[in-house]
Every structure is written in C-alpha cells, then in structure tokens.
C-alpha cells in the first residue's frame, strides 16, 4: 500500500507537482523513497490512444457485426440492398430502341441505358448504372432488378475487408498495434487492492479462456 510520500496521483501534471513538493527531509533516513509515477502516464496514454481509436473501432465493430449477422437481418449482402420484381408488360414489338423507350415510359425510368444487348430473339438485356431490365419478349415479362448501396455499411465493410489495400494496410496495422497497446495498458491502469492478482487475474484468465475453450471444443 502506498504511503503519503509515494502516493500516486491521477495525472502526469499532478505527478510533476507531487515530485516538486516531495522536498528532501532534513533527516536523510526519513527522505521519501522516490518512485516513478508511471501509472498516470499509462492512463493518459491509454485515454489518448483510446480517443484516436474510437472512429476505427466503430468502423470495424459495426462492420464485423454486420458481416456476422447480415444474413439474419437481410438478404446477406452487407454492402448492397438488392431488389427484384417481375412486371407483366404484354407483347412488345418494334426494334430494340423502341422497346427500350416503351419500357422506360412504362416503368418511369428517366435514366438513359448504358447498354442494350440482344441476348437472343426473345431476350433483351437493358442495363443502367445500378439497375437491369431482363426482358422476355416472348412472354411479355420484365425482371426489373438492381442494387442500392447501404449508406454506412458499404464503406465500413470495404475498409474492414481491406478491399482498397495499399495505404489502408498501414492504417489497419497501426490500429491493430493501438488495440494491443490499449489491451496491455488496460491491465495496469488501476492498481486495485491486490493489483493484477485479484479480480483482474480472474477476468484476464476468463478472457483468455473464451477463445481457448472454443477452439478446444469446436476448433479446426
């Protein structure tokens, strides 16, 4: 237990003041033991690294949850919402251009197609940027399908899976190092009555045991 002379304080600035105030006593034997006040610095480092890591933690955590559970919530694609509907349009005659114009009017599409492809006598493919019309000319049906990007998850997932490569690899590596620092510094931030050997040890062992037990029983 720290006595008054070696008591640690909460902030590096205060630690500095404490050191100044710990003037040498006239009796050398009574001089307080000089102890490095490292814990306040550790807490400060943990706090500041934690601040910087907040944004990336949200990106990785939300993207991770989405990738794990998106199949439970939606159609299984974390990045895009897909839709598809079949529209009965009846028999359509004329050349490809006339068919396209008629379908654009019928379906209320203002966009100009970027491709019109005659796959066969009965099948016409009309492609827009995020939308495709698959026209069955024999049956007079149109499958109207496409994808809409999800607002946040598409970008988060793109970053999480490091699809961009290059510079993001360095950012991801630095973030991983920051997480290691946060985990390690977190062990020693608050001394507690028994240090790391009390409740802290139980919780650390529990945290280590979770992956170990899982791998033991269900691992490769």
């Amino acid at each position: 237990m720290a006595d008054a002379a070696t008591k640690e304080v909460d902030a590096p600035e205060e630690a500095g003041v404490a050191n100044v105030r710990a003037k040498p006593a006239t009796d050398a034997a009574a001089r307080p033991t000089k102890k490095l006040a490292w814990r306040p610095w550790l807490r400060a480092a943990h706090r500041d690294v934690g601040y910087v890591a907040v944004g990336l933690t949200f990106v990785y955590a939300l993207s991770g949850i989405a990738v794990n559970h998106i199949t439970d919530w939606t159609d299984g694609d974390p990045s895009f919402k897909s839709y598809s509907r079949t529209v009965e349009v009846g028999r359509i005659e004329g050349d490809d251009e006339a068919i396209v114009e008629r379908l654009r009017t019928r379906l209320g599409i203002r966009e100009t197609p970027r491709e019109v492809y005659r796959a066969s006598d009965d099948q016409l493919e009309i492609l827009f940027d995020r939308r495709s019309l698959h026209v069955d000319l024999a049956n007079g049906t149109v499958v109207d399908e496409g994808q809409e990007p999800r607002f946040f998850l598409r970008v988060a997932n793109w970053l999480h899976l490091n699809r961009g490569k290059k510079a993001w690899t360095y950012v991801a590596d630095a973030y991983a190092a920051a997480l290691l620092l946060l985990a390690t510094s977190g062990l020693f931030m608050i001394a507690g009555k028994k240090g790391l050997f009390g409740r802290g040890a139980v919780l650390v062992l529990l945290g280590i045991a979770i992956p170990v037990v899982y791998v033991h029983f269900a691992g490769p």
Binding site: T71, D75, G76, D77, P78, S79, F80, S82, R114, E115, Y117, A119, E125, L127, S132, Q147, N157, R163
Partner: peptide, 15 residues
C-alpha cells in the same frame, strides 16, 4: 440463394 456480397463486377453481357 443469398447474394453474400463481394466486389461487384460489370454486369454487362456486351462486355
């Protein structure tokens, strides 16, 4: 079947 994501490719039959 579910789409399951992936980097979206060019859907163009012409290309």
């Amino acid at each position: 079947i579910r789409p399951m994501g992936g980097t979206v490719g060019d859907p163009s039959p012409g290309n």
